[in-house]
Design a protein around this nucleic acid. Sequence first.
DNA 1: CCCTGTCACAGAATATTATTCAGAAATACC
DNA 2: GGTATTTCTGAATAATATTCTGTGACAGGG
Lengths: 156, 156
Amino acid sequence: MDVVLDNTDLQILELMQANARISNADLARELNMAPSAVLERVKKLEQKKVIQGYTTQINPATIQQKLLAFIFIRSSEGFTCSSNTAQSLAAIPEVQEVHHIAGEDCYLIKVRTADSSSLMQLMRTQLQKIPNIASTKTTIVLETVKEQQQLVIPKN
Amino acid sequence: MDVVLDNTDLQILELMQANARISNADLARELNMAPSAVLERVKKLEQKKVIQGYTTQINPATIQQKLLAFIFIRSSEGFTCSSNTAQSLAAIPEVQEVHHIAGEDCYLIKVRTADSSSLMQLMRTQLQKIPNIASTKTTIVLETVKEQQQLVIPKN
DNA sequence: CCCTGTCACAGAATATTATTCAGAAATACC
DNA sequence: GGTATTTCTGAATAATATTCTGTGACAGGG
């Protein structure tokens, strides 16, 4: 069940990670291959779930999402973290990431809202409703220096 | 200098965020517009930097990146955080995100490596080399429940 | 050694798309 | 009202995606 990727696959991933909208023809030119062969590989990478999707990176500020925060979540006294909790957190649109973490806290979540007041509102109206959780440390981001979903593609 | 987006722009962003490789023709069909008009809008969204890029989401595990960690960085005693520090952090490929945060710590970084030993190695060989910093709390992610660069598109 | 299945690829043919452009609406702005 | 600017449509063309057929490489039996 282990996926094996050769050098060509990795090159494809590298190029498509940098620009998901690269044409199949350009991809083929870069790799010195026929477009049909490249397309076949891309389709397989999608089937094998190596490629999980293609997204457009939007400047958050331009759509009125100027606040970014990380919040540590723990279960309230006497309760343990259930996967239900994780699902409830994940269901909130403003919650972009939910990570189950090691240590005393249960989850670290990444939240994006318009401003601090809407974050407060979200915490009151959405987070507090989830059973048996207590948010702990909330970290407000002042400025994001780097943010990319770009993985390091290993060289073969 | 403020970017204004109408309903059509927001629809385009929503569709392209969900699938960056949607064809311009499909986009036009969804919006009941001519392909040329849609293309014009997309080009403008790129120019205005509302759209920052298109990326392919790769399953990290399939390219041997099984460990995810968040590390809080602070400046060592008697030093303040400089933007040089941020740049040094951002220059490390395994460091996916660098956020300047409020509070006593300076930065929160997100790091992805193959395993815990390569994280340790990275901390020793890369992080320690950066002048005047001290890493504080390191949070290891056991399991990622949700992770999407999907912003909440406001409805008009 | 040959047979056979599998795989990745090239090349060609066709369907579909991207891109460009001219001109018509729509809009905003004196 | 007049004028500029923006946004759109529709058509033409260039480029691309997609499909299909066939070939060569390779592996494992028998």
